[in-house]
Design a protein around this nucleic acid. Sequence first.
DNA 1: GAACTCAGTGTAAACGTTTTCCCTCAGGTA
DNA 2: TACCTGAGGGAAAACGTTTACACTGAGTTC
Lengths: 365, 365
Amino acid sequence: MKRSRKAADTSTPAKIDIRSVASLARVSIATVSRTINHVPTVDPILAARVWKAVRELNYFPNTQARALVSGKSRLLGLIVSEITNPFFPELIQEFEHAAVAHGYEILLGSTNYEPKTMELCSRRMIERMVDGVAIMTFGIEDFLLDRFTADNIPFVFIDPAPSRPLNSVLAVDYRAGIYEGVQHLAVLGHRDIGFISGPLNRRSAQSRKAAFLSCLESTGIKANHDWLIEGTHTLDGGRDAMRHILALPNWPTAIMCSNDMTAIGVQHALFEANLKVPSDFSLIGFDDIHLAEYTIPPLTTIRMSCKDLANKAIENLLSRLNPPEGQGEDATTITTRLIARQTTGFPRNTLQDLKQTPARKPQSR
Amino acid sequence: MKRSRKAADTSTPAKIDIRSVASLARVSIATVSRTINHVPTVDPILAARVWKAVRELNYFPNTQARALVSGKSRLLGLIVSEITNPFFPELIQEFEHAAVAHGYEILLGSTNYEPKTMELCSRRMIERMVDGVAIMTFGIEDFLLDRFTADNIPFVFIDPAPSRPLNSVLAVDYRAGIYEGVQHLAVLGHRDIGFISGPLNRRSAQSRKAAFLSCLESTGIKANHDWLIEGTHTLDGGRDAMRHILALPNWPTAIMCSNDMTAIGVQHALFEANLKVPSDFSLIGFDDIHLAEYTIPPLTTIRMSCKDLANKAIENLLSRLNPPEGQGEDATTITTRLIARQTTGFPRNTLQDLKQTPARKPQSR
DNA sequence: GAACTCAGTGTAAACGTTTTCCCTCAGGTA
DNA sequence: TACCTGAGGGAAAACGTTTACACTGAGTTC
């Protein structure tokens, strides 16, 4: 009745609720409810009448009312860092796919790396009564986790901390993939390897950097701290970090990046400087987004399967929603592995001279 | 009481609702409601007590109950084609930004180009009682629109059709940008221009293709229908379309793509075939996603501002939610324009010979 | 000092569902 | 025929809010 309609359409559009279905089907609303929820005891004759009415009126049940009374929203929260990093859309898609397969919908939140936004997201999740929440980003505060616990909302996340429940962490084995990457470079002959991390105020970025450093050490390569740059996990961040490295007196021969977007930014900085990949620099990314296959040349990277991540997250959440009989409450782990494409090759000072035109003197050893 | 907790934590975690706040603050629930909704008539003394209780209990109001009784969910639906095409995350981000600026949240749906999924999305939007919905994809059926109308849910979309309300369409002026693109190529000397469209069962793809053809004609260039390929708006689609063109006996000298992802796929196919951009082929994309600046070489493309699109969509929706005094109910139009970067240059047979190594004979005229 | 106002509260009725409980009635049994 | 059983359906309570309405008192006006 609020909005007045334009045309000769005088009648208020009839609200279509369970009552209208009930009266059209000449049954009680209880029967309608039972029918649409597939309760087996309802008389097929009545059920048929109900379905007919549902179709005729184009009736959709009101989810809010449903959730309110049943206490279950059939909604799974998914909090990610940043929707414009293609890794996350891929993750979201997998997550959504797995969720709907189990009859859930997803409520998306994106923090943009801001603690304030993270808090807002968590709040929304609670307000909308999600049945569970997957936190695929870093830096969630314990007090928010406590609020989830208070509302009995199970959560999964990839941000391990000593104080936190083990059964809710999806441990990513960064080290395995990064080790493969470092080995791959070492075998090619690289000894001067730089690393562009994500923003170091997140634990994941720290984990990846720490993994890199430790892999370097176990491969017997000495780290040069001038080549450990803090990036932002974005195209711009990768480009800027590489520009910074190119301004250094000594250059590494290979760069590892803590995500693929960073690596693509690096490729661009190299293109600007008229340097070639992999002949001047070898380059390894992390994530293996679909785009990695399409860069020029295609990006060697470390795959973290977002399908795996999504499925394990959902599986974990669901198992705590409908607790199965006996099961181990172990931390799940997500593996990573190297996908070798065309951005890695022999270092420039091993097999070939510098016939290219580098603007500065490369690292000699 | 459902889930049993692990530890010595025997007490059921107390449900925190408006009643608990009311009793802690020693006021009625009505006063709590008025306080948290900033109704100005409440006594500051009581309000202070309420806020204190809210903080103490960490109370979040239940959105479902709120929406149920007020009839307003403060939720805006956003339906997009495909979340893994970076254009859409950028759009989503802008949309969300504008939405929260007005106190709304967004409910995201992604159709993956499947009519069935589109129907499911629309259904979710209605079930969750969105206050309005922006349909940023194509191929929505009239019966779904009717359902929105029946529930008095305003919608905006970019899929014009004769039968549809003018005030709800965001007309995109594809022609302006495409014309600039064709002109740009013509000035460089290109006469043989191919076009890779999106999936032609969507009207937008048809619109862009039609715009291209019409621009070609008004520039006095004859279209070659062998070079009009139907793509999928994806990386893979672009690559495959270009492979197809390269298998033809005659090649165009320039390719326009109906989105940037397609263009990046084309670049990859060219890379595979050891062909150079722009010396062998000029290339123009559409959308201007952030990544376009980062391809190698950076992509010349036609910008459709997703910020503009998002803002206009929200503006339209909001103006119909809270109808202002007097305003024109015109169709809004979104402009497009050429962003010239480095994938366009002189055609290969105008200024230079074929010193490259093309696998096949190029088109001669 | 009585009658009015009106600011500020509280009570209770919605909102559209699910779900518990009770009732009816058909069919089976003695 | 009288009784029991149980399948199936309806009435009504509940979910956590907002909001219409009624109420209380303090301040104002004569």
